[in-house]
Design a binder for these strands. Sequence first.
RNA 1: CGGGGUGUAGCGUAGCCCGGUAUCGCGCCACAUUUGGGAUGUGGAGGUCGUAGGUUCGAAUCCUGCCACCCCGACCA
Length: 492
Amino acid sequence: MSKSLPKRSEDYSGWYNELVKRAGLAENSSVRGCMVIKPYGYAIWEKMQRVLDDMFKRTGHSNAYFPLFVPKSLFEAEEKNAEGFAKECAVVTHYRLKTNPDAKGKLMVDPEAKLEEELIVRPTSEAVIWNTYKGWIQSYRDLPILVNQWANVVRWEMRTRLFLRTAEFLWQEGHTAHATKEEAIAETEQMLDVYAEFAEKYMAVPVVKGIKTPNERFAGAVETYCIESLMQDGKALQTGTSHFLGQNFAEAFDVKYATKEGGLEHVWGTSWGVSTRLMGALIMTHSDDAGLVLPPKLAPIQVVIVPVFFNDTQLEQISLKANEIKKNLEAKGVSVKYDNRDTQKPGWKFAEYELQGVPVRIAIGARDLENGTAEVARRDTKEKKAYPLENIETIVEGLLHDIQENIFQKALDFRKEHTTKVDSYEEFKEVLNKKGGFVLAHWDGTPETEERIKEETKATIRCIALQTEPEEGSCMVTGKPSGKRVYFARAY
RNA sequence: CGGGGUGUAGCGUAGCCCGGUAUCGCGCCACAUUUGGGAUGUGGAGGUCGUAGGUUCGAAUCCUGCCACCCCGACCA
């Protein structure tokens, strides 16, 4: 195993794959397409979960849990949704194994134990949930229902990549039911805002909020909202989606409520989710050739203290000071690791914590004790500076704040530099090939043109941004009139 | 599912064409010297060569089947 990662500029996907493994985030498992999320990677996911979960609670949602299996008859009830997922479903057909009479010590599927109705391993839970909601909702007094679940889902992907696309992944899916269309749309938009806030304030990942074109829309939704972000290789990544389901699922599952006025109406629905794919966005937005760069707000270890010592006496003295700093920082809510192992050298530790993206590193040696200082290094810029020990906690606290701001700003600048307006198809292709990033162009609004662009350039419409100001123009491909520019990019 | 490739120690590999029981690096263990950016030396442990079969006195090497993984395509919210 070589010591350094592949360079981003030379082999971006190699860099990503190696980084995920070497930083201890995840690894491939013996199950095709499925990953093992390792403790360090899972710790980041847990922090994401905690923040998001709080945000969901604050907006009135409660958690619940629904089954992993969906009976085929339920699954197919909402036709478009079922069709959209049909090609990537794992299906349970039997419920028993038996010993194989032809191969000693081996098991085989018991042909006698065929399920009467196949069970689909959920690729998403709308079907089970709406079928359940049917029993929960009779009157307007039962609405709204604001439920979220943290779960795993399975989508049998042909080609997988750690975090970005795996056959099984972890996510949360919110499913809400409302009395009115307006309320459901407001919910959809509210959750999109929650995701955007989370991405920008916590992950430090700038996002474009928008709606999907019909081609890219969630199967079964009336409107799909999304947040899109830009990775360092110029490819876009969908980081979250929020769907206005209209009455599609209510109709498919016959979910009606009695109105105040005594009428009977189908309820309105939404669903919204973010997944472990966020980990991919986090990694690819900030990290560099030396390893992971984590935003302080999501870093499992925010500060690491590394002692530099030559003998046990020195270590003892340094530890005294280090533990004091650790305690003081922890009192301020900062998570600190004091790495006093004598089995690794300081230089090794420096490199290791850089690989793991720990935002701030404090090194204390005998020399520092004499001078009453410590060396403080920040991960994002790799700057090192000696500070007096007295107010080091304040310095570190400020630094964590700075890093959070700085990496967001850096990502935002990158996105600005890589967002290009073009007015011709030629220019469009050139920008895609030479520069990458988001390309803002006029489009005639037809699925045919969108499809043609996708086939010819591999770029898709990432979204129609919510904040886009109207601008008269003509479609770069067909010349037909267009009222605004849309975001194109090659995407993950 | 199509086209190409690869499976050899925990990881990365040489050997395969031309058959004779496996090379090197990292990591691991022990000891010593080291320790402010991934230390050095000496010694040591670790292998069903993906798997099943075939050819052969003898197979990592040749042949066949199977499995897994990677790349390209197709597919993909």
